[in-house]
Write a protein that binds this DNA or RNA. Sequence first.
DNA 1: ATGGTCGGTAACCGA
Length: 258
Amino acid sequence: MKIATWNVNSLRVRLPHVLDWLKTVEPDILALQETKTEDSQFPLEPLQSLGYHVVFSGQKTYNGVALVTRMAPENNITDIPGLEDPQRRILAATVGGSRIVNLYVPNGSEVGSEKYAYKLDWLQRVTGWLEGERQRHPHLVVLGDFNIAPADRDVYDPVAFENKLLCSAPERAAFEALLGIGLIDSLRRFDQPEKTYTWWDYRMNGFRRNLGLRIDHILATEALMSACLSCEVDQGPRGLERPSDHAPVLAIFGDSAS
DNA sequence: ATGGTCGGTAACCGA
């Protein structure tokens, strides 16, 4: 079973990349963020024609999440108790017996800003809800754009980013709290190339110079992780013409998840 | 040199 996450920064612009990637990699589940598409405008048919089910929660201009799945998604959720949020950032579904939670965590704008406070509050509320999800679903995957680089090795210049957005102590503590409910950072279960990142700023030739951060993650419960065979970043799509500023992250699970 | 580039949408905002 192949499970992936990809912030596409506008699904309509990135649709050719997404379709090519689905054909090449053939994931069982692909979680998309920043679709930036109202549900009435969602490009459903091209994805369905590849044999996928699709559920989505979008809005105009900003945010938006989707799940592209081989097996039919069940018990879909786009809103959680205790979080009245018009921003479309959460999409959970049960797929093939596993609970899949796709998150587009708020960016936070700047440490100390109103958006930063919203980010931390959002993370706290979502983590509280996920604790219940973890109890209800032994096979739980939480994946998406977390907008948090968990440690200094996830940052191309840790000194410059010290206590800056995406790296501040409260954000990293929020990420640790998420792991604390019983989730594992799948990429760190495996050896990775030096300086493995998932996002590179469009400016400054960031990708060519590998000036990146690792802010997109696939977390899973130990019951699933014990069957995880690999997790890696696919930098290929980031090098295409008109790329997203994020690369997909892909985890592969064997059959023996128990 | 404290910039720079995208996407969405129509002068800027958000990332």
